[in-house]
Amino acid sequence: MFVSNIEDIPGKTITTCYGIVSGSTVRTKHLGRDIFASIKNIFGGELKGYTELLGESRDEALGRMKAQAQQLGANAIVNVRFSTSSVAAGAAEIYVYGTAVTVE
């Protein structure tokens, strides 16, 4: 599966277009992580627990999007965009979308 955030896959030509595919996930960490993060808020610095959380969510959302594209019979996704929003304290929604295409 080729994935890119530009309009084409360099070195290949698009033959068929299947339309938009997307993947989303809402995830949250367990309470311990949240407590740790609020302590870290006093000292400042990277919140590793949340970095990890968002990384896992993004991989999952990407996986769902790729699965959807595969189901359509596409072998590439172009013009991929990410968006993040927080729906509640400590929970994040990751949304990934792109255009499923076949390239040769």
Binding site: N41, G45, L47, Y50
Partner: peptide, 9 residues
Amino acid sequence: GHVVISIDY
């Protein structure tokens, strides 16, 4: 690549 970073008190 991504990072979550917090400000101090």
